[in-house]
Design a protein around this nucleic acid. Structure first.
Lengths: 144, 144
DNA sequence: ACAAATTATATTGTGTGCAATTTTATTTTA
DNA sequence: TAAAATAAAATTGCACACAATATAATTTGT
């Protein structure tokens, strides 16, 4: 087909490699996360809790760019596994507070190896990784 | 919580902004793709067909980094909409050939505005966009 | 030639993502 | 202060993603 619309070629898109790369790397996490009985989305949720110990659903959603439609069932699963508790805030019953349990804290030590093991999967120089990181956050901040 | 494992902080991850950015940009496509009755995954599938006119499922999956579990139902939907046809190859009945229809070709003209409209959503300089593009393909190629 | 291995696609089941709607609680305003 | 507006989660419904398995066709090895 003639090259009438170069913008419509997959190779000229910026979004496509972003989308493909994101999924491929999440896939690389899987064997390590399987050992912890975590999905990638559950893993980044736990990562927020390992940092903050306690957070409500709205704030968590802002951290992760996810909404309650995704987070509600996910947090219920994490509660079932015993890693978080869910309770309403006394001051405002609309707000649901998610809190890390001791079991959830323990999981952190076991998860410590994940970033190390992953680091050898990414074949970028530290400089390239830094550049990529900066550009991605620039996009996230400016346009999203 | 003490900073025992800096690698476990969301802000130190490269994968997270990739994952978040990818989803945020796909979200930006939505209003434009809605007008064409396409999802993002259907859109990139059509993009391959607009370039190649005809392709089998395996090759399509290699182009898009997707497997038959995702593509089979998606291609059936595109067939229902009348934009592609699906038939087995005579030489090898295992192979399913997807072919663009005239209706599918017509859709291309209506889709031409999508990359233009999207371009103003991405607040990177052309130079930054090029750098990002190169780094993403480097990651895709080297590690995935 | 024919059983075994391989290959291509389809199916199944689980877990997101997200838009749209609903429910419940709080805040604002007439 | 009571109705209207707003806000936070939950629910619903649809469309991916993808691992694992199944099915059917082809190729390989003896």
């Amino acid at each position: 087909m003639e090259d009438k619309y170069p913008g419509l070629k997959l190779g000229n898109q910026l979004c496509f490699p972003l989308y493909a790369c994101s999924r491929e790397i999440v896939k690389k996490y899987k064997p390590f996360l399987d050992e912890l009985d975590l999905t990638y989305t559950q893993y980044i949720t736990m990562m927020v809790l390992w940092e903050k110990e306690q957070i409500n659903v709205k704030e968590l959603g802002e951290c992760l760019y996810l909404d309650s439609g995704t987070l509600t069932p996910l947090l219920k699963k994490l509660e079932t596994k015993g890693w978080v508790t869910r309770r309403r805030a006394k001051e405002d019953e609309r707000v649901l507070i998610v809190t890390l349990t001791q079991e959830g804290r323990n999981l952190r030590d076991r998860a410590a190896m994940v970033p190390e093991k992953m680091s050898c999967c990414v074949k970028l120089t530290p400089e390239e990784a830094r550049t990529l990181y900066t550009l991605l956050y620039k996009m996230l901040g400016d346009c999203c």
